[in-house]
Design a protein around this nucleic acid. Structure first.
Ligand code: NAD
Ligand code: NAD
Lengths: 221, 221
DNA sequence: CTATTATCGTTATAATTTTCACGTTATATT
DNA sequence: AATATAACGTGAAAATTATAACGATAATAG
């Protein structure tokens, strides 16, 4: 009789450690590329430069079990991760700011793999209104209300300059947005029931700069 | 006699906990926007929804001290963070892949604030060669060697599709690149002396999807 | 000048996360 | 069918990280 262990999952929502969630996303990325049928914790660990025990512990949080002697059935594990992240459910999102980055996102074909559909892109520059970003016409902010209701949009993407970010967020929240995907390099203040995910692209390179300065190889510069 | 405590820093390179480094980046983002002269750990903590003790502990890693009764002198603290991250030293970087994202990055004016200069952008599509991305002409891969040497490039930015990412990285490493800033949604395998920072933009939205499903407000969808 | 107070820096304590160690189980072998 | 083995799952130990507590200190008020 397999899987008789009572999973923590059953008793209310588990809190995933933030680091575990990040690693689960890495497993998701890795496994999606894998061609074979099974993979061991050891192989996953090797490819990600972590310990196999860590991999097993992380996966034990999921509603999924591997097979002794064989490893993890990749497509089932991906299913479990898809379940965790809701990638099979589609969320409609909007983008505010039809500049270089906003347009790149609007053109991105890969979002479908993550259960994301960009339903509209907005800008406040009259010159930009009516132009195209991918398949989408750039809309004025006055259309926000209509679009958010019509497509039941929960996630708003901030692609405006840093100095406009906070007021844009305030507006989105007033219009009913529940989660902010923030690409502006600033810290946003939001009510505590609103989620924020910061994608501070440029600042992320500082990790590399920091480490390059401290790594034997990179020391000379 | 102030600052008589022997900082850990003095005895060899400190290891910053990953979470601490991430928070230090957030302080950097927050403080750069701050207009006043001083700020307290309490105010920083409030704006980032963390505890003030955490802020003080993080800052204690730096070669910087605040003032009792007053708080942290913002511009000095920013200087200490700039020092930590090397934002005042310029690194020349290259971009591989002159598609939507690569061009957006090539056009980004904000990199100067992070000590980054994009010196070249490459593509393997003959149609793209010679076209412009910002100020830069799109170059063929055969120019890699020359550019990397001429500008002493340590960091390579991956903006090619996932399926080309690994071979592009292999090539860059062969040409002497020491750090990879990876925007492709795949896990890269590199020798252990090579640094990798993954900017898996699309996958980052999964955190929001995951939490929206588990947050009272976002439950109904 | 002294007392008071706000806020830092740091040591001690608590909580969390990772690693270890080993029992369990599915498959393969003799 | 019994045995060997590879890999998982998990409870316990270790390590790391976060929180709390508190003494030290600079500014301010009296
Ligand atoms: N381009 C990149 O590669 C890159 C890299 C790192 C960070 N970012 C950040 O992403 C954001 C967007 O960058 P970008 O390069 O696309 O900038 P951009 O200047 O090309 O585009 C910004 C767009 O926002 C619009 N806008 C400004 N204020 C607005 C408002 N209040 N409401 C609606 N629209 C408004 C502008 O009209 C413009 O079209 C910025 O915060 C930037 O710092 C971009
Ligand atoms: N555009 C986005 O907003 C976005 C969002 C998330 C992730 N990404 C990721 O970023 C990467 C780039 O995305 P994009 O939208 O710019 O794609 P894109 O298709 O617009 O551009 C890719 C470019 O890479 C070039 N290329 C392909 N193989 C190459 C090779 N071997 N050597 C050199 N150049 C090569 C192509 O000619 C093309 O110009 C992809 O991995 C994508 O998954 C992009």
């Amino acid at each position: 009789m397999k899987n008789m262990s009572v999973k923590k999952k059953r008793n209310g929502p588990i809190m995933f450690p933030k680091a575990t969630l990040e690693r689960l996303k890495m497993y998701h990325a890795l496994l999606q590329e894998e061609k074979s049928e099974y993979i061991s914790s050891e192989e996953i660990a090797r490819k990600l430069s972590i310990k196999p025990e860590q991999v097993r512990k992380d996966i034990s949080y999921l509603d999924y079990s591997g097979k002794p002697k064989v490893g993890y059935h990749i497509s089932s594990l991906v299913d479990a991760l898809d379940e965790l992240f809701g990638t099979k459910l589609r969320d409609n999102i909007i983008i505010i700011g039809a500049g270089h980055l906003g347009k790149a996102l609007a053109n991105y074909k890969g979002f479908v793999n993550f259960g994301i559909r960009v339903v509209a892109i907005f800008d406040n520059d009259p010159e930009k209104l009516g132009t195209y970003a991918g398949e989408l016409v750039v809309l004025p902010l006055k259309d926000l209300d209509r679009v958010i209701r019509r497509f039941n949009v929960k996630i708003g993407t901030i692609c405006v300059p840093g100095e406009s970010a906070q007021k844009t967020v305030d507006l989105l929240i007033k219009k009913g947005i529940k989660a902010i995907w923030n690409f502006a390099p600033v810290i946003l203040e939001v009510p505590e029931n609103i989620l924020v995910e910061n994608m501070d692209i440029a600042r992320s390179v500082l990790t590399l700069k920091h480490l390059l300065d401290r790594t034997p190889t990179g020391k000379i510069r």
